[in-house]
Simulated scan of single mutants.
Amino acid sequence: MRISIGCDHIVTEIKNHVADYLTKKGHKVIDNGTYEKERTHYPIFGRKTAEKVVLGEADLGIVICGTGVGISISANKVKGIRAALVGDIETARYAKQNLNANVLAMGGRILGIGMIEDAIDVFLETIYEATPENKALISKIDSIPMSEEAINANHMFDEFIEKWDKGLYQD
Protein backbone atom coordinates (compact mmCIF):
# COMPACT_ATOMS: atom_id res chain seq x y z
CA MET A 1 0.00 0.00 0.00
CA ARG A 2 1.16 3.56 -0.71
CA ILE A 3 0.92 5.73 2.40
CA SER A 4 1.44 9.49 2.49
CA ILE A 5 2.71 10.78 5.84
CA GLY A 6 3.37 14.20 7.29
CA CYS A 7 4.03 15.93 10.60
CA ASP A 8 5.10 19.15 12.24
CA HIS A 9 8.46 19.81 13.90
CA ILE A 10 7.27 18.67 17.32
CA VAL A 11 6.93 15.01 16.32
CA THR A 12 9.54 14.52 13.58
CA GLU A 13 11.08 11.53 15.38
CA ILE A 14 7.69 9.84 15.71
CA LYS A 15 6.94 10.41 12.01
CA ASN A 16 10.34 8.92 11.15
CA HIS A 17 9.57 5.92 13.36
CA VAL A 18 6.18 5.49 11.66
CA ALA A 19 7.82 5.68 8.22
CA ASP A 20 10.30 2.95 9.20
CA TYR A 21 7.52 0.87 10.77
CA LEU A 22 5.42 1.04 7.60
CA THR A 23 8.38 0.32 5.32
CA LYS A 24 9.28 -2.78 7.35
CA LYS A 25 5.69 -3.97 6.90
CA GLY A 26 6.11 -3.70 3.12
CA HIS A 27 4.33 -0.41 2.46
CA LYS A 28 5.60 2.36 0.19
CA VAL A 29 5.92 5.54 2.24
CA ILE A 30 5.62 9.01 0.75
CA ASP A 31 7.24 11.25 3.36
CA ASN A 32 6.00 14.84 2.99
CA GLY A 33 8.03 16.15 5.92
CA THR A 34 8.80 17.97 7.94
CA TYR A 35 12.27 16.51 8.20
CA GLU A 36 13.82 18.75 10.83
CA LYS A 37 13.15 19.99 14.36
CA GLU A 38 13.14 23.61 13.17
CA ARG A 39 9.81 25.31 13.92
CA THR A 40 7.30 24.96 11.12
CA HIS A 41 3.55 24.98 10.65
CA TYR A 42 1.44 21.83 10.51
CA PRO A 43 -1.09 23.14 7.93
CA ILE A 44 1.60 22.79 5.25
CA PHE A 45 2.20 19.13 5.99
CA GLY A 46 -1.46 18.26 6.61
CA ARG A 47 -2.29 19.63 3.18
CA LYS A 48 0.70 18.04 1.40
CA THR A 49 -0.15 14.64 2.86
CA ALA A 50 -3.85 14.91 2.03
CA GLU A 51 -3.22 16.08 -1.52
CA LYS A 52 -1.23 12.94 -2.28
CA VAL A 53 -4.29 10.90 -1.28
CA VAL A 54 -6.85 12.83 -3.34
CA LEU A 55 -4.53 12.91 -6.35
CA GLY A 56 -4.23 9.11 -6.20
CA GLU A 57 -0.49 9.15 -5.50
CA ALA A 58 -1.18 7.46 -2.16
CA ASP A 59 -3.86 5.03 -1.01
CA LEU A 60 -4.13 6.48 2.49
CA GLY A 61 -2.53 9.16 4.63
CA ILE A 62 -1.22 9.50 8.17
CA VAL A 63 -0.72 12.90 9.81
CA ILE A 64 0.79 13.59 13.22
CA CYS A 65 1.30 16.74 15.26
CA GLY A 66 1.49 17.34 19.00
CA THR A 67 -2.20 16.72 19.68
CA GLY A 68 -3.30 15.72 16.19
CA VAL A 69 -6.01 18.38 16.23
CA GLY A 70 -4.43 21.06 14.05
CA ILE A 71 -3.03 18.75 11.43
CA SER A 72 -6.32 16.82 11.15
CA ILE A 73 -8.24 20.05 10.60
CA SER A 74 -5.69 21.07 7.96
CA ALA A 75 -5.96 17.74 6.14
CA ASN A 76 -9.76 17.93 6.18
CA LYS A 77 -9.62 21.23 4.29
CA VAL A 78 -8.58 19.28 1.19
CA LYS A 79 -11.71 18.35 -0.77
CA GLY A 80 -12.20 14.60 -0.75
CA ILE A 81 -10.37 13.98 2.51
CA ARG A 82 -11.97 12.35 5.52
CA ALA A 83 -9.27 12.65 8.17
CA ALA A 84 -10.10 11.03 11.49
CA LEU A 85 -8.35 12.11 14.67
CA VAL A 86 -8.01 8.96 16.75
CA GLY A 87 -6.79 8.27 20.24
CA ASP A 88 -7.71 4.61 20.52
CA ILE A 89 -8.02 1.43 18.48
CA GLU A 90 -11.81 1.32 18.26
CA THR A 91 -12.01 4.85 16.86
CA ALA A 92 -9.44 3.94 14.18
CA ARG A 93 -11.52 0.89 13.26
CA TYR A 94 -14.82 2.81 13.21
CA ALA A 95 -13.39 5.66 11.13
CA LYS A 96 -12.30 3.31 8.37
CA GLN A 97 -15.12 0.76 8.60
CA ASN A 98 -18.06 3.15 8.70
CA LEU A 99 -16.83 6.50 7.38
CA ASN A 100 -14.18 5.29 4.91
CA ALA A 101 -11.64 7.67 6.45
CA ASN A 102 -8.69 8.06 4.13
CA VAL A 103 -6.34 9.89 6.50
CA LEU A 104 -5.48 8.79 10.03
CA ALA A 105 -4.56 11.67 12.37
CA MET A 106 -2.89 11.23 15.75
CA GLY A 107 -1.32 13.25 18.53
CA GLY A 108 2.31 12.32 18.94
CA ARG A 109 2.48 13.95 22.37
CA ILE A 110 -0.77 12.30 23.43
CA LEU A 111 -0.30 8.69 22.34
CA GLY A 112 2.56 6.32 23.03
CA ILE A 113 4.36 4.70 20.13
CA GLY A 114 2.72 1.34 20.85
CA MET A 115 -0.76 2.86 20.57
CA ILE A 116 0.25 4.70 17.40
CA GLU A 117 1.46 1.45 15.82
CA ASP A 118 -1.68 -0.43 16.90
CA ALA A 119 -3.96 2.31 15.56
CA ILE A 120 -2.11 2.29 12.24
CA ASP A 121 -2.35 -1.50 11.99
CA VAL A 122 -6.08 -1.52 12.67
CA PHE A 123 -6.70 1.41 10.32
CA LEU A 124 -4.81 -0.26 7.47
CA GLU A 125 -6.36 -3.70 8.04
CA THR A 126 -9.96 -2.53 8.40
CA ILE A 127 -12.15 -2.70 5.32
CA TYR A 128 -14.79 -0.08 4.62
CA GLU A 129 -18.31 -1.51 4.84
CA ALA A 130 -20.18 0.17 2.01
CA THR A 131 -23.63 -0.22 3.54
CA PRO A 132 -26.43 2.08 2.36
CA GLU A 133 -26.36 3.80 5.76
CA ASN A 134 -22.59 4.38 5.64
CA LYS A 135 -22.79 5.63 2.05
CA ALA A 136 -25.59 8.01 3.01
CA LEU A 137 -23.58 9.39 5.96
CA ILE A 138 -20.51 9.99 3.80
CA SER A 139 -22.66 11.62 1.13
CA LYS A 140 -24.12 13.99 3.72
CA ILE A 141 -20.64 14.83 5.03
CA ASP A 142 -19.34 15.42 1.50
CA SER A 143 -22.29 17.69 0.68
CA ILE A 144 -21.62 20.15 3.50
CA PRO A 145 -20.82 23.43 1.74
CA MET A 146 -17.61 25.22 2.58
CA SER A 147 -18.17 28.68 1.05
CA GLU A 148 -19.11 31.58 3.32
CA GLU A 149 -22.18 32.26 1.18
CA ALA A 150 -23.39 28.68 1.54
CA ILE A 151 -22.80 28.71 5.29
CA ASN A 152 -24.75 31.94 5.78
CA ALA A 153 -27.74 30.66 3.77
CA ASN A 154 -27.52 27.09 4.98
CA HIS A 155 -30.64 25.25 6.02
CA MET A 156 -29.51 21.82 4.87
CA PHE A 157 -30.13 20.23 8.27
CA ASP A 158 -33.62 21.67 8.81
CA GLU A 159 -35.32 18.42 7.77
CA PHE A 160 -33.27 16.42 10.28
CA ILE A 161 -33.79 18.92 13.10
CA GLU A 162 -37.52 18.77 12.45
CA LYS A 163 -37.47 14.95 12.66
CA TRP A 164 -35.44 15.16 15.88
CA ASP A 165 -37.92 17.59 17.39
CA LYS A 166 -40.75 15.17 16.54
CA GLY A 167 -38.92 12.33 18.33
CA LEU A 168 -38.39 10.28 15.17
CA TYR A 169 -34.76 9.43 15.92
CA GLN A 170 -34.39 6.58 18.37
CA ASP A 171 -31.08 5.22 19.64
Rank of each mutant, 00 (worst) to 15 (best):
Ala84Met: 10
Pro145Val: 13
Ala92Phe: 12
Ile14Asn: 03
Gly114Tyr: 11
Tyr42Ala: 09
Asn98Tyr: 15
Glu162Lys: 15
Lys28Ala: 08
Ile30Arg: 00
Pro145Asn: 12
Gly107Ala: 08
Val63Met: 05
Ile30Val: 07
Leu60Gly: 01
Asn98Ile: 02
Ser74Tyr: 07
His17Ile: 01
Ala83Lys: 05
Leu55Gln: 13
Arg47Tyr: 15
Lys96Glu: 08
Ile44Ser: 09
Thr23Asn: 09
Ser4Lys: 03
Lys140Trp: 12
Asp59Gly: 11
Lys52Trp: 00
Gly80Thr: 03
Gly61Glu: 02
Ala92Val: 06
Glu36Leu: 13
Asp59Tyr: 03
Asn32Thr: 09
Ile73Glu: 10
Ile64Lys: 01
Ile10Gly: 12
Pro43Asp: 11
Met1Asn: 08
Gly61Ala: 01
Trp164Cys: 06
Gly68Tyr: 12
Ala95Phe: 04
Gly112Lys: 05
Ile3Thr: 02
Ala50Phe: 00
Lys96Asp: 08
Asp8Asn: 13
Arg93Val: 04
Ser74Val: 06
Lys163Ser: 13
Lys24Thr: 08
Ile30Asp: 02
Val18Leu: 03
Leu111Arg: 05
Glu125Thr: 11
Ile5Val: 15
Ile141Pro: 02
Leu85Tyr: 03
Gln97Ile: 07
Gly6Val: 10
Ala101Lys: 05
Val86Ile: 13
Ser143Met: 10
Ile161Lys: 14
Ala84Asn: 06
Phe45Asn: 02
Leu85Glu: 04
Ile44Ala: 11
Val29Arg: 00
Leu168Phe: 08
Ala75Met: 03
Glu13Gly: 06
Ala130Trp: 05
Met115Phe: 11
Asp20Ile: 03
His155Gly: 15
Ile151Ser: 13
Ile110Phe: 10
Ala130Met: 05
Leu99Lys: 11
Leu99Trp: 10
Asp88Thr: 09
Lys52Arg: 11
Thr40Gly: 08
Thr131Ala: 11
Glu90His: 14
Ala136Glu: 15
Ile73Gly: 06
Thr12Met: 06
Trp164Leu: 15
Ser139Trp: 09
Gly33Glu: 02
Thr23Val: 05
Leu60Glu: 06
Phe160Tyr: 14
Glu162Ile: 07
Ala92Ile: 11
Lys163Arg: 15
Val78Pro: 01
Val86Leu: 09
Gly56Lys: 05
Ile110Glu: 06
Phe160Asn: 12
Thr126Arg: 12
Ile71Lys: 12
Pro43Ile: 10
Arg39Glu: 10
Gly33Thr: 04
Thr23Asp: 06
Leu85Gly: 03
Ser143Asp: 14
Thr40Ala: 09
Thr40Val: 13
Asp59Glu: 15
Gly167Gln: 13
Val86Ser: 08
Ala50Met: 00
Ile81Cys: 01
Ile81Phe: 02
Gly167Ile: 14
Thr40His: 06
Tyr94Arg: 07
Ile161Gly: 07
Gly66Ser: 09
Ile138Trp: 07
